[in-house]
Amino acid sequence: MFNLISILIGLVSLVIVVPSQIPLLGWGNWVALPLVVVGIAFGALSSSNGGRNFCLIIFAIAVVRLMLGGGVV
């Protein structure tokens, strides 16, 4: 059950992170990061690793985008 919740949270975060890759919309990554961390936590409580790994990939994409944009842009 926790794995399914983690995947659903990851999908919601993915919907936020994908448009945030456009310049001047990088602030969306700051909205998505807390959601992804919650998804990682739920994935860690699960016996399966799929949801956690999915959220970790989304987290990495958001963090790299924030680093490239200087944290704001």
Rank of each mutant, 00 (worst) to 15 (best):
L45R: 08
G43Y: 01
N49T: 14
S47F: 12
L56F: 13
M1H: 05
G50T: 14
S20D: 07
F54T: 04
S13R: 05
G51F: 03
S6R: 03
A44Q: 12
V72T: 10
L33C: 04
I58A: 10
N49V: 13
S20V: 09
S46H: 08
I5S: 07
V12D: 07
S6P: 01
M67T: 11
S13H: 05
I61T: 08
V38T: 13
S13L: 02
W30N: 09
P19E: 09
L45M: 14
W27I: 15
N29D: 13
I5R: 10
F59K: 04
A44C: 09
F42E: 04
S6Q: 04
S48C: 06
G43K: 01
C55N: 00
V73P: 06
P34V: 00
L24T: 13
G70P: 08
G10Q: 04
N29G: 14
V64A: 08
S47G: 11
A41L: 15
G50Y: 11
V63Q: 03
G43P: 01
V73G: 12
L33R: 02
L33H: 02
L14Y: 13
L24K: 10
P34G: 00
S13E: 06
L45C: 08
F59P: 05
L66G: 02
S48A: 08
P19C: 05
L45W: 15
P23Y: 10
F59D: 05
I22T: 15
G26L: 09
I57F: 14
M1Q: 06
F59W: 12
P34N: 00
I57Y: 12
L35C: 01
L66K: 00
L35F: 14
I61Y: 09
R65F: 15
A32I: 00
G10C: 09
Q21F: 11
S48P: 05
V31D: 03
G26C: 08
S20F: 03
L25N: 08
M67N: 09
